[in-house]
Amino acid sequence: MPQILIDHSTDVVLDRPAFAAALHEQLAQVIDTTVAECKTVFRPAADHLVGDGGEGRAVVLVEIKILAGRSAELRAELTDRTLALLEAHVRVPAAFGIEVTELDRATYRFSHHAGGPGSS
């Protein structure tokens, strides 16, 4: 269920599979989910700017989407743990932004599509 979108500048030095695996483990510890249910997409961005660009810092923006109903304290814990993971895994000066957003239980759907007839 958790969907993680990670936008980052191309100059970020990050072992993406290791970071995603650690983040999935963390999610399973903090909310009622399993590692197998976590999905992460990395989206490198060729262009970025932090402040006036004078510091030359990389940027990593993380959005963690979870089903609605968790407390603000639990979401804040998830944010804090994600920040600690970023600090442990990113090896260049960088600006980090992390947000935990909620998916509406009434309208959210997820499916595992096997392909085959009717698929494009």
Rank of each mutant, 00 (worst) to 15 (best):
I64S: 08
E99C: 13
L14Q: 00
A20N: 08
L83E: 15
E63D: 14
E77W: 03
D47K: 10
A36Y: 03
E63Q: 15
A94V: 02
T40C: 08
R70D: 09
L23W: 04
L23N: 09
A46E: 13
A95S: 12
T101Y: 06
T33L: 04
L85K: 08
G53L: 00
R70A: 05
A94R: 01
S71E: 02
E102L: 06
L27S: 11
R16S: 09
L74K: 12
V60G: 04
L67R: 11
A21V: 00
L23Y: 04
A22E: 08
A94Q: 07
V35C: 04
V90Q: 05
I98H: 08
D80P: 06
R81E: 11
V100R: 06
S71L: 04
E102F: 08
V60R: 00
D47F: 10
P44R: 02
A88D: 12
A28N: 04
D32F: 08
Q29A: 14
A68D: 14
L61H: 14
L67A: 09
E99Q: 13
D32R: 12
V59I: 12
E102A: 15
A95G: 10
A95W: 10
Q29D: 14
D47W: 09
R105A: 15
V12P: 04
T82M: 03
L85W: 07
Q26E: 10
G97E: 13
A88P: 03
F96R: 02
Q29R: 14
A45Q: 15
E63H: 14
D104V: 03
E73M: 09
T33Q: 06
L103I: 02
A84T: 14
R75M: 13
V13P: 05
L27R: 07
G69S: 04
A88K: 11
C38K: 02
D32A: 12
V30S: 01
E77N: 14
A36H: 10
H48Q: 01
V41H: 12
A21F: 03
L74I: 14
L49K: 09
I64G: 05
V62W: 05
D32C: 09
E25K: 13
R57T: 09
L67F: 09
Q29L: 12
D52K: 08
P44Q: 01
D104N: 15
L74R: 13
A58I: 02
V92Q: 04
K65F: 05
R81T: 07
T40M: 01
L83C: 14
E99D: 12
A36N: 11
V62N: 08
F96P: 01
L67E: 07
T34S: 15
R16T: 11
V59D: 02
T34M: 01
E77S: 12
D52F: 07
R70N: 10
A45F: 02
R57M: 12
A84M: 08
L85P: 01
D104F: 05
T40H: 01
S71G: 08
V12H: 03
R57K: 15
V90R: 05
